[in-house]
Design a protein around this nucleic acid. Sequence first.
DNA 1: TTCATTGCAAAGACTTTGCACTTGC
DNA 2: GCAAGTGCAAAGTCTTTGCAATGAA
Lengths: 169, 169
Amino acid sequence: MASYTEILLRAALKKHGFRLTPQRETILNIFQTLPKGKHLSAEDLYELVQRQGEVISLATIYRTVKLMSQMGILRELELAEGHKHYEINQLSPPHHHLVCVRCHQTIEFVNDLVLEVGQKQANSASYDLLDCQLTIHAICPEALQEGWPSSLSEDWQCPRSGLTGDSHH
Amino acid sequence: MASYTEILLRAALKKHGFRLTPQRETILNIFQTLPKGKHLSAEDLYELVQRQGEVISLATIYRTVKLMSQMGILRELELAEGHKHYEINQLSPPHHHLVCVRCHQTIEFVNDLVLEVGQKQANSASYDLLDCQLTIHAICPEALQEGWPSSLSEDWQCPRSGLTGDSHH
DNA sequence: TTCATTGCAAAGACTTTGCACTTGC
DNA sequence: GCAAGTGCAAAGTCTTTGCAATGAA
């Protein structure tokens, strides 16, 4: 599963009776040109579309990422920000996430074992694997040192913030 | 990490300056007496509390499961139902989930490799591991056969429904 | 007594949906 | 042409929060 050209996307959609619309093309394009490891929320995507001069309604954004996730084109990530994030589903190799429950900073990593486990598990139940995500919840050293979770103040700024690909507000 | 008695819970809370309240005890109790592998949404928990004659406000339910998850007492699961589920965090061994994106039926499984990977990853970043979850998104044989996702009707009932521990409405 | 915790109700964040219009095929 | 797709605005669902009252230590 390399990269979805318009042709491939059309084929994938057609296979299920869906249509290729400019909106769907635009959205797929954005995900394809996204820096590796970056993931977007619906809102992020909405803004990115606007920034390149087009407009797609939020409703369509939601409908599209949902559809594409269900088709296996996108991965739906549930990190710790309270809303979903999406990225291109590159099955080779998918990366996983280590998330600090305190500051939400996310470290991505790759591990082939995980996919093997997932594939094996899906196969053994005769399921068709779409995606496979290992999410590790942990506390980062900075938060630990700060004595977390005794101080629940939501305003503490982890010095780690801004270092990695954390794309929420 | 065997089972939280009142004593242990108090100690864990005290360590962070939190208090032991009847509500917190009740909630922990419910999770402890829950059948293995069963997980609850906030709403589920709210109803279970009522069914045993007590009343805890939804706000407190939410605050409590959040706190306990952040303390590592509960695991916060993000499956495919659009809301979070919680269960006791038994680090030995944590189980993982294979979820059908179509019918939301969930198969649980245990795999030691996953925890090893998680632990190793957390350690290498000097994080303190709280939880480690592998979530596999896939399509169940029944849905595949039904031609999913070409038929997006939300009313299709997977014959698999009701077989396993799927606790949403 | 003191400060964490609770309950209530209101607010918030995110997502979905009904409907009329548009458009791919 | 017709069913699928879109945009809009309204409605939902789940979750959080302000505040006064309560209660654990």
